[in-house]
């Protein structure tokens, strides 16, 4: 029971409280770049979630069984970047073979994720937070879902912004950034909720 509870806490807190985009400001580039339309945003969100899960499944063992064993913790960043880049490329190739339709819908976003700092961030944070393998996977799932939530919310807001009359100095990126900061502020309201939810 305590295991389920602790996993739930990790999941919910990484979706809401520690939302990577809105509280930790990782992955801002796709958040601003690919959030113009709903289907684009959800496609990017799903791809990032999948890549985060697979990246964690690979990098956690590498950290624990190779880097930690040989006391090479300082190589974490460079090795993770290398592994994630290769991994995403591999996923793209395999996906093209196994499911061309999924490859077509995710195709554009996969190469973008290769250099996404949110993916690198979640794998490294899982290690720093001292999670075991199961906890790491749950945390990655939560972060991915949180990313998707932020993308979808923001795509809705952006389509509203696009149709409204905005004073010229605020047009385009300015209004987008202001809107993003407002959602970020709103998400800070979740701080403390999760701990009290289960106590």
């Amino acid at each position: 029971m305590t295991l389920v509870k602790s996993l739930l806490v990790i999941l919910l807190s990484s979706v809401l409280v520690n939302n990577y985009v809105l509280s930790r400001f990782l992955g801002i580039c796709p958040f601003l770049g690919a959030s113009k339309k709903f289907d684009q945003a959800s496609g990017m969100g799903i791809s990032v979630t999948i890549v985060m899960l697979i990246a964690t499944a690979v990098t956690w063992p590498i950290q624990t069984f190779i880097l930690d064993r040989f006391e090479l913790g300082y190589l974490q960043t460079i090795v993770f970047i290398l592994v994630i880049a290769a991994l995403v490329q591999m996923i793209e190739i395999v996906l093209g073979k196994i499911s061309p339709s999924l490859h077509k819908s995710l195709g554009v976003y996969l190469p973008l994720i290769t250099t996404n700092c949110a993916v690198l961030g979640v794998t490294i944070n899982n290690i720093t937070d001292g999670y075991n393998f199961l906890e790491s996977m749950v945390s990655s799932l939560g972060v991915g879902l949180g990313f998707m939530l932020a993308m979808i919310l923001f795509s809705g807001i952006r389509s509203r912004i696009e149709e409204s009359k905005i004073p010229t100095p605020f047009k385009g990126l300015a209004s987008t950034l202001i809107a993003a900061s407002f959602i970020s502020l709103a998400f800070f309201g979740f701080a403390g909720i999760i701990d009290n939810l289960f106590s």
């Binding site: 090479l72 300082y74 190589l75 592994v83 290769a86 591999m90 190739i93 073979k97």
Partner: peptide
């Protein structure tokens, strides 16, 4: 450090080329 990074890169590239060989469209 050098050897570890090279080894990881080598493994990744071998896997990638294998994957593209057998799964490539």
């Amino acid at each position: 450090a050098f050897l570890v990074v090279v080894a990881v890169g080598l493994v990744a590239s071998i896997l990638l080329s294998l994957v593209s060989r057998y799964f490539g469209v």
